[in-house]
Amino acid sequence: MNNEALGIFINFLFSIVVYSIPLLYGTVGEIITEKSGSLNLGVEGTMAIGGVAGYIIGCSTNSVTVGILAAMLFGALCGLVFSFLTVTLQANQNVTGLTMTTFGLGVYFFIGNGLASSGKWPIMTEHSAIINSWEAKIPFLSNIPIIGKILFSYNIFVYLAVIIAIVAYLYMKYTKMGLKMRAIGENPAAADSLGVNVIAYKYIHIMLGSAIMGIGGLYMGLNLGGSFEGSTCWINGYGWIAIALVIFAGWNTAYAILGTLVFGFFNTLQVYNTDLAYAFPNVLGWLSKIPPHLFKALPFIITAIVLVAASIRKKKNPNEPSACGINYYREDR
């Protein structure tokens, strides 16, 4: 393996992580939501609103931290609307989620177009603090050859996502609150009869999940250099992939890290297929002949296969929350 080929290969591994981490935010957020018994199909819209709000507020205060907090806040607000409609007002979760997606994209383009047409859209490169924190690397460790690049040269969002995923895993598995929340996802009536405040738990976890999705939206925006395109949204379908990933990861936020990388692998392959074919002509030469659309479709094809395989085995994934998608009306018990 010559140096150039090695360089391309390392860049490929690096890009997998950079491109796929927003998915992890969406997926972890959705797992938390589904585990507490709600199917929120509004990931795409929530990420769009969180992203655009976080970006604009972050830029105007010139701080990534404020940006992240704003993205979480606006994400959580979307979650609040969703939980008010589905938990308190018993609205259908599918329809509410789809509406959230439509609404979120509407808000994204409304704000984006309004600011862009009057020249007020913030430009990322003009905000030194944002750029600096975006490009900051872990000192010393990132200088180690190869490993430094693959493991320690990412922006803070990447590490934050992994930490959130692990904390969420520990929270759901080992804490009392996590146990109660999972109980609601399995059987809200039983949890209720044991004295768990079902409504409060649902609100908290839907909002928490949506807040995490919001950070993912901000990441997507920053990763695209904060540029607003009139026709395509930053999120561009990632919210839907995140919903697919939940199933692929088997409702486990720790597996979601791995699942994200698998999905990201295919997603990145469509960008790097010609480079890789060029670097390793003997082994990977065939890559350049595969249409990039297949790589784009693969995450969805794989998820579909996982869905079908799981249902054929008749053995439901024990992690799948049984009451997910069904509203809980106390007097129906």
């Binding site: 609307v81 409609l85 329809v95 509410t96 609404f103 994209l105 409304f110 177009n113």
Partner: peptide, 17 residues
């Protein structure tokens, strides 16, 4: 110029909510 056709999505979203 400052409003694009996605404004329909926004209104539709609020109506449905």
């Amino acid at each position: 110029a400052s409003v694009d056709s996605h404004f329909a999505d926004l209104l539709q979203g609020i109506i449905l909510f």
